[in-house]
């Protein structure tokens, strides 16, 4: 393999700065989408378990639609199609006056995609707890809604702590697709450096290491939190 490795390039300006700002955007997009994903996902997940048929159906439709369309396609729908479908004035406002429309589109698009996956995890978590504990809870005289609020919901949310950590990391990785609508996040910046310096492999290597460290530290952090407050502690106490 004939490649002239030169790691020094990355330490020069502006490239070093590009990588940092890329990392910054990756974090901003991930966190922004995650806020949306959690709020929408938890609501939809709970709605999915409600006894009301209409609420259930609305939640299911959301989950199925947003899970089964590739996130890139969803992003394009929000970016190119959605403004066209609105009344002219509003569409125009989005296109012209919305501050940082790419960022807003990215977190909405990625957030709603991740939200559907979060909702599915929540539903599964609640269902898993319910199989064992619902009969017992009802037998103590709790009404179904009380049993849900007091037993299934808190335990279900604790049970999905691990899966939600994975979902967050998927969201971090998924934030890279926002480069297709012009967000200069980490992956985009490393590609950008390739364009300017022809030392792309070095830039990709740095990006790879950054994603890896991000993943490992989030996993580690969540494990610590889980051990202190979460399901792990609960499991130990109950056994």
């Amino acid at each position: 393999m004939n490649y002239n490795w030169d790691w020094g390039v990355l330490l020069q300006q502006p490239y070093w700065g590009w990588l940092w700002s890329g990392l910054g955007w990756t974090l901003l997009i991930s966190l922004g989408s995650w806020v949306i994903a959690l709020s929408v996902g938890i609501s939809a997940g709970i709605a999915r378990c409600m006894p009301n048929r209409a609420i259930q159906i609305v939640a299911s439709v959301y989950i199925e639609v947003f899970r089964n369309i590739p996130p890139l396609v969803q992003l394009f729908l929000w970016y190119f199609v959605f403004p066209e479908l609105l009344p002219d004035a509003l569409g125009l406002w989005i296109k012209r006056d919305l501050p940082n429309p790419e960022y807003v589109t990215a977190i909405v698009g990625l957030g709603l995609f991740a939200g559907a996956r979060v909702a599915e995890q929540i539903r599964a978590g609640i269902a898993a707890v319910g199989i064992h504990l619902l009969p017992a809870a009802l037998a103590t005289g709790l009404r179904p809604l009380q049993a849900f609020r007091l037993i299934l919901l808190p335990l279900g949310l604790r049970a999905v702590f691990g899966p939600l950590t994975s979902e967050f990391l998927i969201t971090v990785k998924m934030s890279s697709i926002s480069l297709t609508i012009g967000m200069l996040e980490l992956t985009a910046q490393s590609r950008h450096i390739e364009n300017y310096t022809f030392h792309g492999l070095e830039a990709f290597a740095v990006a790879t290491v950054v994603y890896l460290l991000l993943g490992l530290s989030v996993t580690g952090l969540m494990r610590v939190i889980d051990r202190r407050f979460g399901a792990a502690k609960y499991r130990r106490a109950s056994s």
Partner: peptide
């Protein structure tokens, strides 16, 4: 672990340049 931590797009970029090399 590495493959599962990085975005697919980055992997596509990697090999887009690496394979010809």
């Amino acid at each position: 672990t590495v493959m599962r931590s990085v975005p697919l797009i980055l992997v596509l970029f990697w090999f887009y340049f690496l394979v010809p090399l």
